[in-house]
């Protein structure tokens, strides 16, 4: 019998080519980043005009700013997600709010940078700093957490919630003891991805966190991150070893983002495995 599976073979071929092209980016970065790699790059300060500069402050800024931004935007965003899924009245304006949030999920990062620059840096006189950058990241992250969180929560089977309420649990008990635990693996997954997205953010930070680092860490100290350093050194770096510095910074950055995504995925998979065919049916 003629099977007619030509398009399946085509799709397999396309997949190989597509993955090869994207992996090319990572492999080239690994090759250039590892050439001349030295661990002292992780502990030294950057140098503007001489070779051998490090990325220690950028590393600290990246991790601290992403963590602070998540500490604010993840709980608030999840609160919005819970309200939208469990508390919102069935009114037309709630639908509009959801649509607006979905729209703002794809707000260009440079626009967030522009807004934070106009309001915080100009309006309130904040310096280009860790603080301004953290706020920019949090603003960028809020709609994403709210929308993705609401999607994840809405995928918890409705009969679980109905059962909980029927047994006499209050709404908030249902949220804390049933909805959030049931959605936990998926939420951890999303958190990892959002961590990676913020760590790799550049456009929103160039004019809020700035392209310099301070002598020590502080809320109002200059807050260049790894991603911004990567961009700055590759496009405008004046140090003799700019090629190496850029590639090494990029390699560290990609390692962090991949680590966040993979770590979250492994953690989520472990929780699911422990549960067996547990509360969440999404397996």
């Amino acid at each position: 019998m003629k099977r007619g599976r030509r398009w399946y073979a085509v799709s397999a071929g396309i997949t190989v080519v597509a993955l090869a092209i994207v992996l090319w980016v990572l492999l080239l970065l690994a090759k250039d980043g590892l050439a001349g790699w030295h661990w002292s790059r992780l502990t030294r300060f950057p140098r503007e005009l001489r070779s051998g500069g490090g990325i220690a402050p950028e590393l600290v800024n990246t991790v601290s700013m992403v963590m602070l931004a998540e500490c604010f935007s993840a709980p608030v965003g999840m609160a919005v997600a819970v309200w939208l899924t469990d508390y919102a009245p069935p009114a037309a304006w709630v639908g509009w709010l959801k649509r607006v949030l979905i729209g703002f999920q794809s707000i260009p990062a440079i626009v967030v940078g522009l807004i934070v620059y106009q309001t915080l840096v100009d309006g309130l006189g904040w310096p280009l700093s860790v603080g301004s950058g953290t706020i920019a990241l949090a603003v960028l992250n809020l709609p994403a957490v709210a929308v993705l969180g609401a999607t994840v929560l809405s995928e918890v089977p409705g009969r679980l919630r109905e059962g909980s309420l029927a047994l006499g649990a209050t709404r908030i008990q249902t949220v804390w003891r049933l909805m959030l635990p049931a959605a936990l693996p998926a939420l951890i997954d999303q958190l990892g991805y959002s961590w990676a997205r913020l760590a790799g953010e550049t456009a929103a930070l160039i004019f809020t966190a700035g392209i310099n680092v301070g002598p020590r860490w502080g809320w109002f100290q200059p807050g260049e991150t790894l991603a911004v350093h990567f961009w700055y050194v590759r496009t405008e770096g004046a140090m003799p070893d700019w090629r190496m510095v850029a590639a090494a910074t990029g390699l560290v950055l990609v390692t962090i983002t991949a680590g966040a995504v993979l770590g979250a995925k492994l953690w989520a998979a472990r929780i699911l495995a422990k549960r067996g065919v547990g509360v969440s049916e999404r397996g």
Partner: peptide, 13 residues
């Protein structure tokens, strides 16, 4: 993992 690669790395490439 690839979707989370920062865009600046794509620009570098």
């Amino acid at each position: 993992v690839l979707a989370a690669v920062p865009s600046v790395a794509m620009g570098w490439w």
